[in-house]
Simulated assay, not measured.
Amino acid sequence: MNTPPTRILYQSFTDPAVHQPYLKRLEAYLTEIAAPGVTYEVRGISPADTQLGRLSELRCGVQSIEGIVEAASEGFDAVLVGHFQDACLYEARTAVDIPVIGHGEASMLQACMLGGRIGLVTLDPVYLPWHREQIARYGLDSRVVDVRAFRLTPDQAVAAYDDELAYQSIKDTFISLASTMVQESQIDVVMSAGGLFALLSADDHVEVPGALVANPTLLAVRQAEASVAIARASGTPVSRGGTFARATQQAIDELLALVKGTRS
Results as ranks from 00 to 15, higher is better:
47 P>W: 10
22 Y>F: 12
66 E>L: 15
209 P>Q: 03
255 L>D: 02
160 A>Y: 12
130 W>V: 02
253 D>S: 12
113 M>H: 09
181 M>P: 00
3 T>K: 09
45 I>N: 13
151 R>V: 13
197 F>R: 01
95 A>N: 04
242 G>H: 10
57 E>V: 01
59 R>V: 04
21 P>K: 12
138 Y>H: 07
188 D>C: 07
52 L>A: 13
129 P>I: 00
221 V>S: 05
218 L>H: 05
195 G>D: 14
85 Q>W: 01
75 G>V: 13
199 L>D: 07
197 F>P: 15
133 E>R: 10
104 G>W: 07
4 P>F: 15
197 F>K: 01
132 R>I: 01
87 A>T: 10
58 L>K: 09
65 I>S: 13
53 G>P: 07
91 E>T: 13
3 T>Y: 09
82 G>F: 08
47 P>Q: 05
258 L>G: 10
122 T>V: 13
60 C>D: 11
195 G>Y: 03
106 A>K: 05
248 T>A: 07
142 S>E: 15
178 A>R: 02
76 F>A: 06
77 D>S: 08
110 Q>W: 00
229 A>V: 08
217 T>C: 04
118 I>L: 11
60 C>K: 13
72 A>I: 10
134 Q>P: 00
39 T>I: 06
129 P>M: 00
55 L>I: 12
41 E>Y: 03
37 G>T: 06
49 D>C: 10
215 N>T: 07
38 V>D: 03
31 T>I: 03
91 E>G: 09
54 R>C: 11
248 T>H: 02
195 G>C: 07
57 E>Q: 11
243 T>G: 01
29 Y>T: 04
45 I>E: 12
198 A>D: 15
94 T>S: 11
113 M>F: 09
77 D>W: 09
4 P>W: 15
93 R>I: 06
124 D>Y: 00
227 S>G: 06
162 D>L: 07
238 V>T: 12
132 R>A: 06
194 G>W: 03
35 A>C: 10
160 A>M: 08
148 R>E: 13
180 T>G: 15
132 R>S: 05
147 V>E: 06
73 S>Y: 01
219 L>A: 13
31 T>W: 01
203 D>R: 14
116 G>L: 06
83 H>M: 10
208 V>A: 09
225 E>M: 02
43 R>K: 10
121 V>F: 03
66 E>M: 12
111 A>I: 04
249 Q>H: 11
200 L>Q: 12
219 L>I: 09
252 I>N: 05
86 D>K: 00
136 A>T: 10
44 G>Q: 09
215 N>A: 08
73 S>K: 14
105 E>R: 00
